[in-house]
Design a protein around this nucleic acid. Sequence first.
RNA 1: GCCCUGGUAGUGUAGCGGCCUAUCAUGAAGCCCUGUCGAGGCUUCGACACGGAUUCGAAUUCCGUCCAGGGCGCCA
Length: 605
Amino acid sequence: MKRTHTCGELRSSDLGREVCLQGWVRFSRDHGGVAFIDLADRYGITQVVFDPEDLPEGTDAESVSGAMRTFTRESVVSISGTVRERVEGTEDSRNPTGRVEVLITSAELLNRSRSPPFELGDQKEGVLPNEETRLKYRYLDLRRTEMVRSMEFRSRLVHLARQYLEKSGFLDIETPVLARTSPEGARDYIVPSRVHPGAFYALPQSPQLFKQMLMVASMDRYYQVARCFRDEDSRKDRQPEFTQLDMEMSFVDEKDIQDTVEALMAHIWMGIYSEELDIPFQRIGYREAMERFGSDKPDTRYGLEFVSLTDTVRDAPYEIFRKIISSGGIVSGINVKASLAGDRAVGRNEVDRYIQYAKKAGLGGLTWMRCEDGVLKSNITKYFTPEILEGIKRNLGAEEGDLVFLIAGPWKPTLEGGGLLRRKIAEDLDMIPEGRHSFLWIVDCPMFEIDPVSGKHDAFHHPFVLPTGPPGSENVGGACFDIVMDGNELGSGSLRIHDPAVQREVFRILGMSEEKIERDFGYFLEALSYGAPPHGGIAIGIDRFVSILLGKDTIREVIAFPKNKKAQSLLDEAPSKVDDEKLEELQIMSVAIDDFFDESDEEGE
RNA sequence: GCCCUGGUAGUGUAGCGGCCUAUCAUGAAGCCCUGUCGAGGCUUCGACACGGAUUCGAAUUCCGUCCAGGGCGCCA
């Protein structure tokens, strides 16, 4: 018999209906006579009851109870019966189907399940097995309601994005997964070519060049839910393969792209939360973000901002600051208000912990002062004049009991370290509002990042960003911008270079030889030379977006089959050794030592 | 490559160098039970990641290895 309803469907309005349900036995409760099964599928859970005192006509009680005895946990079963109201007082208000139950008249085991390696019930928050076990049995882990909801949410979000983009004239165009290796950027995953021994494809780190060439091809507006591959070490928000909502548009400026993304986000927001999203997003310049928040992806949902004190302490007879400032460094301060700390007094022990943390965060040290009796006090205030101390106090708005930290050193590492410290303090003091989200744009980025020692230029974003001035000029900016959500980089976009001469010049500045430029990017420069329109675009990290919205700690929670920290899939045990014959065919010889593989990999060879 | 944290029955956990033949829960197997819903009751089963060292004695201390996670580097 075919199922007539899902396990999340039946309501009081279905009373008396003859139904067939098929699903998984989540829990069963046999009371010696009356017996219950919680039958689950993706849609919900419905209670099935066997009641020997209320056997509907035509029920073969022996056969039903016999079948039910074979229903082990997580077995797939098919049951038929009549929808009836639950006995008064036994309704389950937590379950949408909780007012009804199915009085069973026939039961069939479709596929028996072995006893699962861990429990799949919902309510057991905090007793999940460790992630290793979850990933090994991911098909069971995904059966859990929480994971089903995550997958549904992700699907819904991607659908809303597609819906908006299609409506806005974007074309979904697929780009190759087998592509050319790119010389810059992350390490590539490479794929050998059988037809061309010794030559390799690379899996794309992003569809960057293809989408630009689609603009050359007059496609105007492109999008793709694109898988990207980067062979770099994992983090909780980084996987070897991940998904981007990739977009590109012709004849646009930066604001056009940002407007489009804001409207897209608003559409998604409305679709998911039935709420207007507050647009446009705040725009903060890169330098300002660094100087106020110590981050190029600041979380602005809480204060705790840095204030520059370089000028304030410039004349202080404090040798450490003097040296730093005279060599071009900065001094900046942050005020931990006494009122923020609340009950959690930030005492000497905590200050010492922050000093340790600061050192780990790359800061040379951490200076602290506390506002007591109207003045800043600490072990080093003797190196400052009362006027300078008053200046620090005023600039930071320090009041009685407040604790201020001063960081000092070269601009970037000092502010970055300060940003880590800022986040640490905010976490410790519970200042981060969970469940509230904030978007912002980081704009006005530099084109290049220059190594202070070697003078080597690196692209701040990537080499295809349109410089805002002559690429060779000092401190040239790039027409690029990041979208930041709750302190996470969600995506990054830019206008692109469409003039092949400019593109060539940028490659040169990045230190590439003419030969290398020609070999690696000749085809692309040629494409630009055939009437490439002004264009630009952005890519949004889907995994990160979904995980932030769902409040998950890692993107693995929103990826059906993620890899572990060592880039392995515990489920199918990829990567694996390949048969020698396959390698021979590809004319590949491995120099890896066999011992690298454990015994289970050696079997079957 | 480096740093940090952790590894006890299938799962989640307790476990001051001797009270450990290792706790509790869940699970599994069996029995009992006619309104539960993570049902309940009784019985049974089942573990100190691996190797070395210290010690009269190690789950516990130390060293190494392996495994997992977080971070640094890396991620144009």
